[in-house]
C-alpha cells in the first residue's frame, strides 16, 4: 500500500475514495483509526496503512434536532433529525460516524449493539464534494 502520510488529511482522502483506513504500528501491532503517525503504545513512528473491513456494531448514538449549519444545508432540522454515533469495528477500534438508515425520530428503537456496515455519504459537487463516514444497519 502506498505511503501517504499517516494524518487526518490522508484519512479524509481515503474516505473520499470509499476506503476506511487506519494505521498499524509495525513494531507492536497497535491499530489506530483514524490513523496516527506516532504509536501511543510504544512510541514508534513506523506505521503501515490497513483497510478496515467496514463491519461493526453500534456503541453509542444520539439523534440531533438542533443541527449545525452544514447539516442544515443537507436538509436536517428539528423535523428531520439525524443520527450520529460511535461504531465499534470488528477490528476492535471505534470510530465516530453518521448512522444512516435509522429513524432518528424514534431513538428508543435504535439499539446499541446493532450490526452495521460502512457506507460513504457524499455531498456537493466537484471541488466542493465532501465525503462523510457513515454506517447503516446490516
Amino acid at each position: 500500500m502506498e505511503q501517504r502520510p499517516f494524518s487526518d488529511i490522508s484519512y479524509e482522502q481515503y474516505l473520499a475514495e470509499g476506503k476506511l483506513m487506519g494505521s498499524r504500528c509495525k513494531k507492536c501491532g497497535a491499530l489506530f483509526v483514524p490513523p496516527r503517525s506516532i504509536c501511543i503504545t510504544c512510541y514508534s513512528s513506523e506505521m503501515e496503512w490497513v483497510e478496515m473491513k467496514g463491519e461493526g456494531r453500534l456503541h453509542a448514538f444520539t439523534c440531533i434536532t438542533v443541527a449545525p449549519p452544514f447539516m442544515m444545508e443537507q436538509g436536517f432540522d428539528r423535523k428531520h433529525p439525524y443520527c450520529s454515533g460511535v461504531v465499534e469495528l470488528e477490528e476492535g477500534v471505534k470510530v465516530d460516524a453518521r448512522i444512516d438508515g435509522v429513524d432518528a425520530t424514534k431513538p428508543e428503537e435504535i439499539s446499541i449493539g446493532m450490526p452495521l456496515r460502512v457506507k460513504f455519504l457524499h455531498w456537493g459537487e466537484g471541488g466542493n464534494r465532501q465525503t462523510y463516514l457513515a454506517f447503516q444497519p446490516v
Binding site: A60, F61, T62, A67, P68, S84, D96, P107, Y132
Partner: peptide, 18 residues
Amino acid sequence: EGRVGFTFPGVFGALATA
C-alpha cells in the same frame, strides 16, 4: 466528532445512551 454531525449536546447524548 463535528465532522460526522456531532454537536456539543450530541456528544453528551451519546454518553447518555452508553
